[in-house]
Amino acid sequence: MILLSDPRVAEVPVHECGEPLVEISSVPAIALDPRERDAAGTYGRVRAGALERLRSAAGTLPDGVGLLVVEGHRSSTEQARRFARYEDRLRRSGITDPVELRHRASAFVSPVEVAPHCAGAALDLTLVDAEGVELDMGGAVNGHRSGDERSCPLDAPGLSARARHNRDLLARTMSGAGFVNYPTEWWHWSYGDRYWALITGAACADYGPV
């Protein structure tokens, strides 16, 4: 498993393509949840190319199933705050080695310099039914915040058949549109960033921090 703290991620060159951030809510077929809303509305934006791929992904879902985006773009300031907060949590648990802290923290919060969300390339999302009710995914989006790290990986053990089915559906839908998953977080998918480039073998990332 390659984590975002892996030096190979930072070594991927970025050839910024200049695509703008666009509003996820401009696509009626994709729902946007307010739980991560920020004052500037940053959470509800993503790069234009990523949104077009997300639109395509939504169109492949079975009738009665839709996508619910929890968060898109995130400022570098907010990313740094979240990383420091998670490191503090780990430090309080007894981990003091700086290298181990960075490695462990990056399982759930990216180092700011390579963060896919800061590039407008990442989406935290889940599946919902026709009434907008979240499907059983075997764990909550951002479940690590409540201490439920065990259920967070896409291939987490012990899932019910229903939860496994829904995760597999999400994975087929997003990977089919060109996104890659961050394997410690079933809900996190990205396109065009450094992590995506490393995993897919692309020569460079299309999106840098914005």
Rank of each mutant, 00 (worst) to 15 (best):
E131Q: 15
E23F: 00
P183C: 02
L154E: 07
P28I: 11
H73I: 01
W186C: 04
N142P: 00
R145E: 11
N181T: 11
L51C: 06
L51P: 11
C118S: 15
S5R: 10
I2P: 13
P183S: 06
A177Y: 05
S93C: 01
L127C: 03
S56R: 13
G201D: 14
Y43S: 11
D206H: 12
R85S: 15
T126E: 01
W189V: 08
S106E: 05
R8D: 07
S190K: 01
E16W: 04
G41D: 14
P62A: 06
D206Q: 12
A107L: 10
E71N: 13
E71M: 10
H73A: 15
C152M: 13
T42R: 13
L123S: 05
F179A: 09
W187Q: 05
S26F: 00
F83K: 02
H165K: 10
R53S: 11
G132Q: 13
P28T: 13
M1W: 08
V180N: 12
L67W: 09
P183N: 04
L123V: 15
A29F: 02
R45M: 05
V12P: 07
P157D: 14
V133R: 15
R82G: 01
S110Y: 15
P7C: 13
T200W: 13
R85I: 04
A121W: 05
A119I: 06
A161T: 08
E100N: 09
Y43R: 01
S151L: 07
V210C: 08
